[in-house]
């Protein structure tokens, strides 16, 4: 489904701020794969996501999604097929527009069913209502409310719904529950698990929680210094404990894991 071959990216080349964010990264995801990604700050996790979504073009290498080479495809054209959730729950929705209008935007763009001058129809509203009811947050009765009135958790749940309303070929989750309170994070995470499993969505998820990294999905990737340094799946992964993972990090990276957030959440 997703084939990344030898991509590299250097920011600010030739200056004192030169930073090699991705170094010959290759990654292959099969259809329906759900891989978690761990790594300390600056390891290149978000840069990898941004390379895939097209926030910038890579310096070298190729990105192929569903047999289409998207290496130089424009960002807004890629996003028809790629869902992207950020850590900040405020980034995924338009605050001054109503829930209904936000969902209409997501639906119209991805489904390709609406012309430029199409309007929100009764059947659209019915569809949105059904989707919102799945969240079990009472949002289906507040469809005319501006999204800015919702809590962070509600907004993130809505963003997830919008990204998956029309099943994307690839879903990128960049620590999308990290900024939420534990109870809400749990709820959004369960929702994520359910939607990804039900629709068999190919998914990449960055997390700082070691338990999540091993428990969710079917693969665990570890990044460091712009490389993927560990890629486990199947039986090897099933038998792995959090301690093993930390040990692996020490072996692969050659240093202790220095990230408080990772250590604390083990």
């Amino acid at each position: 489904m997703l084939q990344i071959t030898d991509i590299s990216k250097t920011f600010n080349p030739g200056t004192v701020n030169e930073k090699t964010a991705l170094q010959n990264v290759s990654l292959h995801l099969d259809s329906g794969d759900f891989a978690t990604i761990i790594g300390s700050n600056g390891a290149g996790k978000s840069t990898l996501f941004n390379a895939i979504t097209g926030a910038f073009y890579v310096d070298s290498g190729r990105i192929v999604l569903d047999e289409e080479d998207i290496t130089f495809k424009k960002e807004h054209l890629r996003s028809k097929e790629i869902g992207h959730l950020f850590q900040d729950p405020l980034l995924g929705t338009a605050p001054h527009m109503s829930i209904e209008e936000n969902m209409a935007l997501a639906y119209m763009r991805a489904s390709g069913k609406h012309s430029l001058f199409g309007r929100i129809t009764k059947s659209d509203k019915e569809r949105f209502r059904e989707h919102l009811a799945l969240l079990d947050m009472g949002l289906e009765d507040r469809m005319k409310n501006p999204v800015g009135l919702l809590s962070g958790g509600q907004r993130q749940a809505l963003t997830l719904l919008m990204a998956t309303m029309v099943t994307p070929k690839l879903l990128l989750l960049d620590e999308h529950t990290a900024a939420l309170d534990p109870a809400t994070a749990e709820k959004v995470l369960n929702l994520t698990k359910r939607i990804v499993a039900e629709r068999n969505i190919t998914c990449l998820m960055v997390t700082h929680n070691m338990h999540q990294a091993l428990e969710l999905g079917n693969r665990t990737l570890m990044m460091n210094g712009g490389n993927i340094v560990l890629d486990v799946s199947g039986e090897e992964r099933a038998n792995m404990t959090v301690e093993d993972l930390l040990e692996q990090f020490k072996v692969q990276v050659g240093e202790q894991l220095d990230n408080d957030r990772i250590l604390l959440s083990k």
Binding site: H76, L91, G92, L105, M108, A110
Partner: peptide, 26 residues
């Protein structure tokens, strides 16, 4: 402003990040 195009225009000014992650061509 309530057509699909109108909604996209309103979103463009409302949330730059959302627009970048949506398939709206700003």
């Amino acid at each position: 402003l309530n057509t699909s195009l109108g909604l996209s225009i309103r979103a463009t000014g409302d949330n730059e990040y959302m627009v970048r992650a949506s398939s709206i061509n700003p």
